[in-house]
Design a protein around this nucleic acid. Structure first.
Lengths: 218, 218, 218, 218
DNA sequence: CATGAATGAGATTTCATTCAT
DNA sequence: GATGAATGAAATCTCATTCAT
């Protein structure tokens, strides 16, 4: 009974997934607003009405894709267990590790990644909460992480929230260029991650060559 | 004659500007897709048909706003004359100067800035060329700038294109957080710019404390 | 299965036909330009959007009506098998036969006939090709027919293309007067056809009483 | 005073005529419905508003062009003084004369002729009265003319109204082919008129070779 | 569960005409 | 008389969603 039920559920889930996958492709190719429900169902080979047996509507489906994506990203970062970071050397190694994990996630999900960065904020105001929540989570995690590292004497004193924000920005723009716009495509992921890690590490040292306090600048 | 013509032109231009301003507000409040031409004309107090005497349509108007904005940003960076940068100290001062100029531009144009980062890529594929062109210009300018600084012995050897990309990313995300999402609002612009400049400078030094070559990492 | 499919198709076709019929009436009553899609759907009792499930738009529908009509007319003439015409007597009988067939077609389709003669050329330049094609076909058929009759010694030598053109003109104007403008309504179709046939026959004899060559006329 | 007034009037009239001429061209090129008032005034080099100082509107202007044209045609036929037609030979000469006059009129006014035959009936129901009136006049004149000729023993007994209708149809279709559709363009006007006249004359003889009465046909 | 025909709200856009200057 | 900017009514068409079969 259970087996049969599961098999049935599994069949239903498979179709659901197929429709989500088709939606990703259609959204990727035409953009959310130009994408038509008819195009999605056509790709899966079901009738228009069937769509509404699986999703509440086009917008709800988009929200689900968005959720999936954000959870994937947040999870990737959250699941990362930095273990015992007791030196900048280890820090570097760990950052590289998480950087490569993230890169892999994005590369494995190019289309939804592109959709996310292109238009997630333009679909409906409702989703902004969702997106903001993910960013807040990410930024809070990073800010905390920075604070801990500082307490361990591994990074210098600074505004850890701004640091986190900048870090996210660097990563994001590099991803967008590589994955959404296909520039930087000749650069190896590893080289890119190295640059990111290096830049992060550099920006967190105590004394920066030639850097002077604000007052002296005037 | 000329005076009369100019007066007429000026009147026309004023109304055009009023419509553009109204459009910015409506786009900002509702988003491009939910924005209606009727809302725009209502705000200016003219008839529906009048809109089409000034613009070819909603999309063309959006394109014009986008163009204006991108030109403003690119011009702000391009107009910046770094002058004789012969030390990292001067470099820091100059970066701070351009950073503050840009910040001012964004703060003075909060709404169109928000529209740009929220949905410029989601309006129509036609605009992507426009946007990409601006990014390419910006990235090329920065890449060249980095190369020059390196030749002068002011920054270390690295992939200058990736460096430029990361820099743009940092700046962007910080702007988006402050201006579009109203987080970071308690931070002073100057503090934010200082962090950005500092991070840039740090990331371009020759030896980064604790940083090791890839091979040793394994 | 087939039955079900056929039944479905047949239902669809019926509605399509109903819409075409309604369109003919609306076009007839108001003229193409003043006719509104809303009037058409109202007559059939379906929603506005339904119209676009069956036709690409008002113009395409008009084109279809035009095509149908032209095909009907051309087919009526083309299907007419003049058989073995070996005397002017048989020729007269056969012309009368085809004339009556055509008259029947026009009378059975008064409204679309009226629409055709009133405004087919004024709807859109695209349709002129269609219309010209039908006229060319008709004129070519008649020209050939005249040539054959001449070879058989049944009609005199003359410019057969001009003859065909005149013949079409006579028929047309008579139809327009009877069917579109309701003049000549007291004349029996048979009397009209007889006059047409007689005129055609008379105009194709070798010697015309009192007719003189051009030179002598001056 | 009078002179000055006349000169003034004349100037106004010239502009009016220029606008009418421009309208003919625009109507000819785009068709009445696609023609824009802006295109007409642009051609003359006056402002949009000026148009309404000279005409009540687009439709009224069209009506005026129509009137002018119909009057021209009717006048050409009505002005024709058949003089003393006392033989079929003279009849032939006179018909040829009026045919050539008409041909000249149409050729001199190709564009308005084309407009007339293409779409005069499709502009507005109001104009149908005007057009019908012209046709009625023409048909009545021809019917009378035929009746007189019959009384003089020059043409056979038949339905003179149908005869008139057929004659108008022949002439019309030939004109449309030559002038509106540019077929038959290689034929000399004189050859065409000769065919028309010959056909008319032939169709009005008493005994038609091979023609049999209706009853015998069955 | 699946189908797919039908719905219908509503936004964009056009252009003849007006009228203040 | 001339101008030309402004008007605004109104019609087409789209497509997400529904629901009877």
């Amino acid at each position: 009974m259970t087996t049969k039920e599961q098999r049935r559920k599994s069949k239903r889930d498979k179709r659901r997934d197929a429709m989500k996958q088709a939606a990703i492709e259609v959204f990727f190719e035409h953009g959310y607003h130009a994408a038509k429900v008819s195009q999605i169902v056509e790709r899966v080979g079901v009738a228009q009405g069937t769509f509404y047996l699986y999703f509440e509507g086009k917008q709800q489906l988009f929200g689900e894709l968005l959720s999936d994506f954000l959870e994937l990203v947040v999870t990737t970062v959250a699941n990362w267990d930095p273990g015992e970071i007791d030196s900048r050397r280890v820090l570097q190694r760990e950052l590289t590790r998480v950087g490569m994990s993230l890169t892999e996630v994005f590369l494995d999900n190019r289309k939804i990644t592109a959709i996310f960065f292109r238009e997630s904020l333009a679909v409906a105001p409702e989703f902004n909460t969702l997106i903001r929540h993910a960013y807040e989570t990410l930024l809070a995690m990073l800010t905390d992480f920075n604070r801990i590292l500082h307490r361990r004497g591994l990074i210098a004193e600074m505004d850890f929230r701004i640091l986190a924000t900048m870090t996210v920005g660097m990563v994001e723009r590099v991803i967008v260029e590589r994955i959404v716009h296909d520039t930087l495509e000749e650069k190896e992921p590893r080289a890119i991650v190295d640059h990111l890690v290096m830049h992060y590490l550099a920006g967190t040292t105590d004394d920066i060559e030639g850097f002077v306090a604000e007052e002296e600048l005037k």
